[in-house]
Amino acid sequence: MTLVNRRLIYSLLYYIISIATFLTLWEILVILLSNPYFPSPLSIFRAITRIAIFGDIDGYTLIQHIYASLERVMIGFFIAVITGVPLGLLIGIFPIVRALSIPVIEPIRFIPPIAWIPLAIILLVGMSRYAFIIWVGAFFPILLNTIAGVKRTSITLVQMAKTFGADRNQIIMKIIFPSSLPEVMTGLRVGLGVGWMCIVAAEMIGGDPIGLGRLIIKYANLIQTDVVVAGMISISLIGMCINYMILALEKRMFKWRVEVTT
């Protein structure tokens, strides 16, 4: 057996031990507490399969909930990308844009997405409510990482391009943008993660009976905690999947960046 194989088997073994111990302790806790509202792993698993196959009280299946949430997150995220990346590039490149925008952006950054909910209820309707809350969550990681990427651009590369007669547009498109792309991608990954985690908050205020956040709230009102936790776990697993998919994409895209491959 090679060393790599052995390592792989060990890490898999630890993984299984870790999860199994956690679930066992949880089951023991359920028995000790004997509280009918405290869900056990087994009842959550049953709840997931039930919602996945037969749907919830309104007849929506798990896949439909997931699809609805993903659609909302993607719309909010997309708006965050097309606002955050260009603004980040502008702030990073032009000191005047930085000087004029940071005094406004910096205080807004520290308002949590949840604090925006009452305002969103009053001012917005329909999809725009969801999109706005997701946008608030996703925008700042994208913006800040893009700025950091521009700042990381090597001065030598910019001077090199200048000695070849590159104009400002060429320097931006051929040096600054590709050089900051790894940070931009990190911003997109973190932004999408934060946006996804805002889904419960966003769906608390949306009227539609569909979406993972809505599923949680619906069953919290019915005090059926097994379905509540089933919804929470679905959010977690999908968030993890998205994160690892983008990480894999980053590794493929930025092979040239030695740090990423390690």
Partner: peptide
């Protein structure tokens, strides 16, 4: 640089790592 053609070789590494 827009009139003359300069070939400058910098002391530091000046290759674009993404190319």
């Amino acid at each position: 640089p827009k009139v003359h053609k300069f070939g400058v070789i910098f002391q530091e590494d000046s290759l674009m790592p993404w190319r």
